[in-house]
Design a binder for these strands. Structure first.
Lengths: 238, 238
DNA sequence: TTTTAATTGTCGCATAGGCGACAGTTTGAA
DNA sequence: TTCAAACTGTCGCCTATGCGACAATTAAAA
């Protein structure tokens, strides 16, 4: 995991991505500069660990490019994928605030550029500007609400409904940054979708075929194209 | 929902319950006094709403006695029970921090006494003592971690495993206040367990019978007694 | 271009669990 | 004490889904 200090000159090129992120877009400009100029840019190769469950949390990350897989492994060795973090998404903030170890593994699934803000720098910001606390409280609440609605989905939707929900989520980005249009696509293997849905590759395959026959999506080797996103939304309504 | 102001004299009788609660036990004594003397005690009868999904959140609650059911209703009218809040448990804090509407319904399932702290009083405390922010951040993080491990359970355990986990959770209290011993029991209908597990009454019944035959629990009309809690723990290991 | 590995498409069987039906129990109200 | 309502126990059928097996397809490396 190679690191380099952020050149203040780079800040402008990073800003468009930061502005997609709920963690930044409503922060005052000078707070952003303070955090980002102290941050480090990390490059992580495909397959490498960003961090591991039980590691001490020493900072939080924002994805600049690439894709990071958050997952857990069961006693029997089965991987449970929580989600993927994509450009503009933040992760790792829980350990930052409670000081407890990481609750899951984070792997790079593509070559990634990650902005890393150390716990130290973050705490310094908060001590200096306690007025920012409510902002970060709201972000934690947003995470809780997302997680709760995920649980509701889990309990009330058929596997097909959940699949539609995941496809939309991955296409939109976790924070619905990109309001999607028909024609939008995402790249993900059916195997991975299955791991995220706690299902099997074969069943996911069958359901994707069904959706394709209904004309809702187009499937082609690791790429899913959304043809009728309104229908997808309907299918995952709770 | 009847209300009365807390008599400072009552504080001593309430304190044992507050001390079971993660929201209070590590707060400085004077902060507790400040919050609780400004709080109101609400009595809610069985079946009544404490609040409803989409209501504006005007405060947070601590259960003094009774049991509050947190749930959601699907489009088709099926109820999804998140959990029950029991004496010493806090709920309703998310709307307090992010100002957004309630994310679920809260019903009294028994006659309840609830301590209610208004958003106003709570905000006043935080403005006066910003040093308390990290404390409440940690509590939010705790909620997130609980929720994440709930999702992991959902994905990796059989229904029987999840059932064992729920039995333990309900017997221990949400925050594991009461380290349980063999002989501990909980009162809950099999119907309710089914709604919490997104399962059916009949299947829950069958699984409870199995557990009883294994000698892990004893079942008798709405009451489950834990006979081998170590075995229950094993059965819900991820 | 050829080869190899990864991914996808498809069958078929096994099983968990949803659900209707109905009888038996218990509780609580009249 | 009686009765009704709620809850529990049990059976049987049915569907969704897991999963092994294997062929077909594609992407990527040699």
């Amino acid at each position: 995991m190679r690191q380099l200090k952020i050149n203040p000159m780079l800040l402008d090129s990073i800003r468009p991505i930061l502005n997609q992120s709920s963690w930044f877009k409503s922060l005052p400009q000078d707070a952003i500069e303070q955090l980002v100029t102290a941050a480090k840019l990390k490059r992580v190769d495909t397959g490498q660990l960003v961090y591991q469950k039980h590691d001490l949390g020493d900072g939080l990350y924002c994805v600049m490019s690439g894709k990071v897989r958050l997952s857990n492994v069961t006693l029997e060795g089965k991987e449970l994928i929580l989600t993927w973090m994509q450009p503009g998404n933040w992760f790792g903030e829980i350990s930052l605030f409670d000081g407890l170890p990481r609750a899951h593994d984070a792997h790079a699934d593509e070559p990634c550029e990650l902005l890393k803000i150390s716990s130290q720098d973050f705490k310094a910001l908060l001590i200096e500007r306690p007025a920012l606390y409510p902002h970060f409280m709201r972000l934690l609440c947003q995470r809780i609400r997302t997680t709760f609605s995920f649980i509701d989905e889990t309990g009330s939707l058929s596997l097909k409904g959940k699949l539609c929900g995941r496809i939309l989520l991955l296409a939109e980005g976790l924070e619905h940054q990109a309001p999607i249009e028909n024609g939008a696509s995402l790249c993900i293997s059916q195997e991975s979708l299955a791991l995220m849905l706690h299902s099997s590759r074969q069943t996911v395959n069958k359901l994707l075929q069904e959706l394709q026959q209904q004309g809702v999506i187009k499937v082609h080797y690791g790429k899913i194209t959304i043809l009728q996103h309104a229908m997808l939304k309907t299918l995952c309504q709770i």
